[in-house]
């Protein structure tokens, strides 16, 4: 409902607008810089505008390899996170038992603890177990912290779904598997997909855990981090940044679009 008795004061309006600008101007600036002709510094305002950096990036083999690796990792980790997160949600959403809080905490822990702790822990575990770094070692790390996103989405949906739906289905003659296929899956589908989208965005962008579990491989965020530490190819980095913005915006917008009618939009993006 709209709170109409008193309109927002000008102070509040200005505060809200300034806050929003603070959140968005930096991203807009990156897009502006992608077209600058200046390639030695971050000069503002740009002395001129050009499209040539996009063309150069298109031809950069190393960047596309990094993109490919990141996509591969994000897709596989997302799939694993979907399976593990959905199972955990199905097991935990209703039943109360001793130790439930600890298990819930365990699911949240990988994203709640600083990434560096998760990263170093996995790294030392790999070295103790004698596992050489590979794409798989990265994926294991990513699936661990992506699980919670799917879990949150699915649990939110399960809580809003009447438990009677499952009972109604069985009451009408459907066994457990038929109930799963005809009732549970269609109801959870969009929540799982939304959770998966966010897990994808999370994985595609992750750099800290990746740093510790990647060995010699370069994912797109690692490439980006190297450029941040030692900027050598500023205009190229600008274009890659714009590319990353685009590729993460799509799943986020899609996830919020899918959950737009249900009130779990709020939970789904947490």
């Amino acid at each position: 409902m709209r709170y109409n008795i008193n309109k927002a004061s000008w102070n509040l309006k200005i505060g809200a607008i300034v806050g929003l600008l603070f959140l968005h101007i930096p991203l807009l600036l990156i897009i502006l810089y992608a077209f600058t002709t200046e390639d030695k510094s971050y000069q503002f305002p740009p002395p001129g505008y050009t499209l040539k950096w996009f063309k150069i990036v298109l031809g950069r083999e190393d960047i596309w390899q990094a993109v490919g690796l990141s996509l591969r990792i994000a897709i596989i980790s997302t799939l694993m996170a979907i399976i593990l997160g959905t199972l955990a949600a199905a097991a935990l959403f209703k039943k109360n038992f001793f130790g439930k809080e600890s298990i819930t905490l365990l699911i949240i822990l990988p994203i709640a603890l600083p990434g560096i702790i998760t990263g170093i822990s996995l790294r030392s575990a790999y070295s103790v177990a004698g596992i050489p770094f590979s794409t798989l070692t990265i994926i294991i790390g990513h699936a661990t912290f992506c699980m919670v996103v799917v879990y949150n989405n699915v649990v939110a949906r399960l809580r809003r779904t009447s438990p009677n739906l499952v009972q109604a289905s069985m009451d009408l003659g459907a066994n457990s598997f038929q109930t799963f296929y005809f009732v549970i899956l269609p109801n959870l589908g969009s929540a799982i997909l939304a959770g998966g989208m966010l897990a994808f965005a999370l994985s595609f962008d992750e750099v800290i855990v990746t740093t510790f579990t990647a060995g010699q491989q370069t994912t797109l965020p690692i490439w980006m981090l190297n450029e941040l530490i030692r900027p050598r190819q500023r205009p190229i980095t600008n274009v890659v940044a714009v590319f990353i913005i685009c590729i993460t915006f799509i799943p986020i917008l899609y996830a919020s679009y899918m959950t737009r009618n249900t009130s779990d939009a709020q939970d789904s993006l947490k």
Binding site: L27, D205, P221, M224, L228, L269
Partner: peptide, 17 residues
């Protein structure tokens, strides 16, 4: 939501600019 979920590195990078 968009800034929350968009790339951490890219957002740090924007402040370098």
């Amino acid at each position: 939501m968009l800034p929350l979920w968009s790339s951490y590195l890219v957002r740090v990078y924007s402040w370098k600019l």
